[in-house]
Design a protein around this nucleic acid. Sequence first.
DNA 1: CGTCGATACATGCAAACGCATGGAAATCTG
DNA 2: CAGATTTCCATGCGTTTGCATGTATCGACG
Lengths: 158, 158
Amino acid sequence: MATERNDSSVRLAAETWESLFRAQVAVMRKLQAGPAFREVAVNEYDVLFTLSRCPSGWLRLNELNDHVLLSQSSLSRLVERLEKRGLVDRMPAPDDRRGVLLKLTEEGAALQKEIGRAHVRDISSLVGPALTAAEQKELQRLTEKLRHSVGARPAKQD
Amino acid sequence: MATERNDSSVRLAAETWESLFRAQVAVMRKLQAGPAFREVAVNEYDVLFTLSRCPSGWLRLNELNDHVLLSQSSLSRLVERLEKRGLVDRMPAPDDRRGVLLKLTEEGAALQKEIGRAHVRDISSLVGPALTAAEQKELQRLTEKLRHSVGARPAKQD
DNA sequence: CGTCGATACATGCAAACGCATGGAAATCTG
DNA sequence: CAGATTTCCATGCGTTTGCATGTATCGACG
């Protein structure tokens, strides 16, 4: 019975998603317009950011692809560009010779920090005035819960 | 003092945004993979959807652009494609001859409904199990609040 | 050990995108 | 009302993206 859903609950889920999506669009639009994304595109920064948050420093291309809204081939070429710009280093994975490990270069880490600072400031100036601290915490909790539930699910039955 | 923000509040806002963004990515990834978006891309469906929700039926290209995360030129060409496929009608705006009015054709409206149904089902199967009804309502409230606050703001000072 | 399917990444190619710009119409200014 | 400025949409052009496919490696199985 948990999987059975009536009209109103289906409608609620759809409206919730649409609201989340539109909010994301609205915020993203402002962020993109800011000066922080002159040098690197949003997807590129996203990759740099994800690499910067990786504890070991090295990350598989594969795993990176789970965090970014890009196809495998596009990510492959995006990383290729970042490498040519000297922002990331590549290395064949030691335990799986199909795999590729990625790591920020010094320059890449520096650029990420620099853009990250401006980025965070922009975000704060958008989100800060919109929601109280408690509301932000609650929004964070709900979106994390949503993400984990969605990510854990093994896709949808065909 | 309302505009002054300390480190922890800046960090909270950034973490909140990242969580929202990642949740959006996770859900969008699943939605894109579904069979609903074989015929039309997400951006294209978004346009059809927005037009379907327009009370008068006709919508300015200009206003449409506020809802979609696309540049003006890309939207222009996207609409051009939809027109060639017979999904939307164009018409010069009567009161402003620079403007263009858009409306779904019968076929476009039918396609939007068909895809919309599948889309809503997919969303429900992702969001429904993740959050309780109360949580979904709260998430909707918070994201709406965020969107309105961000949208109302006249962009950022340069 | 050899074969077969699955997985990880790269690449050819057409489609879609953003930036810069163009032209036409509206609006502002003196 | 003439000229300057702004707004709205279209278009040229180089870049980025996704799909389909290719190549190499891994893991499973007889």
